[in-house]
């Protein structure tokens, strides 16, 4: 594409438009509250608690996705079987379902009218209005992002490497842990970041399962409803800043394996 090509200028204009579209509201949000306001918000225990709750429930969702999503992602990347497309579509379902519907659906299973809810009640596990409930919801909405990202990562690794490892005497798990896992580590981390990022932004499903304890998005919503834009903005700024810092740090710290340099 040359600069004289009209299409080049169309692409540039569209790019600028998108940048403005994304950045303008965010910049406005971050610059609206005064520094004093921001400082004051930091002393608000409720705010700190809500942000911390958001961060660690999202982190928990990412860890759970890592533990139970990785084997599935590996199987999806390495095998072909009838109905694979269906399995993949089911995994993507949480992405397309409206968020409150997710909350309602989970409530339906967790309630006392459902056998699973009864078992959980017997084990005194409560999802309604609890941290466990928040983690379940966040895992539900974040898992597809993890699995898809990690599946792509596994697919990018030649199965021949595993084959050679097997022929040299490694068992299937030996080949996975010594070859595939170290090579896929970056995409696993990216998958966890994607999952956590999606989880931390969840509002619609969380508010149905658990208004209290309050995650940051719920708190921001409550402040907005109760006190108006001015009071919700500082909390939002802190949430955005914390998330940005965390995700940036993870991206930078992500080890790049030798031979896997990109």
């Amino acid at each position: 594409m040359t600069r004289k090509d009209p299409f080049f200028w169309v692409a540039v204009s569209c790019g600028m438009l998108i940048f403005a579209f994304i950045l303008l509201p965010l910049v406005e949000l971050v610059t609206a509250p005064s520094v004093a306001m921001l400082k004051q918000t930091l002393h608000d225990k409720t705010v700190l608690r809500a942000i911390w709750l958001s961060v660690y429930t999202a982190g928990a969702a990412a860890v759970i996705s890592f533990l139970i999503g990785t084997p599935l992602a590996f199987v999806l990347a390495r095998t072909r079987f009838p109905g694979k497309k269906l399995v993949e579509s089911i995994i993507d379902l949480p992405i397309v379902i409206p968020h409150p519907v997710v909350g309602i659906a989970i409530l339906g299973v967790a309630g006392k009218n459902h056998w699973l809810g009864k078992i959980m009640a017997d084990l005194s596990i409560r999802l309604m209005g609890s941290v466990s409930g928040i983690i379940v919801v966040l895992t539900f909405v974040g898992m597809p992002f993890y699995i898809n990202s990690v599946k792509n990562g596994f697919e990018a690794i030649s199965p021949r490497l595993e084959n050679v490892a097997r022929s040299l005497g490694a068992s299937m798990s030996g080949a996975f842990f010594r070859i595939t896992f170290p090579l896929a580590w970056r995409s696993i981390l990216v998958g966890m970041i994607m999952c956590a990022a999606r989880a931390i932004s969840e509002f619609g499903a969380v508010i149905i399962i658990s208004y209290h304890p309050m995650t940051a998005p719920v708190l921001i919503y409550e402040r907005f409803e109760g006190y108006g834009l001015e009071y919700s903005q500082p909390v939002a700024v802190w949430l955005v800043l914390v998330c940005l810092t965390l995700f940036l740090a993870l991206r930078i710290l992500a080890p790049s394996a030798p031979g896997n340099r990109t």
């Binding site: 490497l161 050679v164 097997r166 031979g259 896997n260």
Partner: peptide, 30 residues
């Protein structure tokens, strides 16, 4: 039998060296 029980080594056209290991680690893998 699973591949690891066969005593059959394989060398592919693209060599399939483990990219995250040094030459020495590659050779000692098995």
């Amino acid at each position: 039998s699973p591949p690891e029980k066969r005593g059959v080594g394989i060398m592919y056209q693209d060599y399939a060296l483990f990219p995250h290991m040094t030459v020495s680690q590659n050779i000692r893998f098995g």
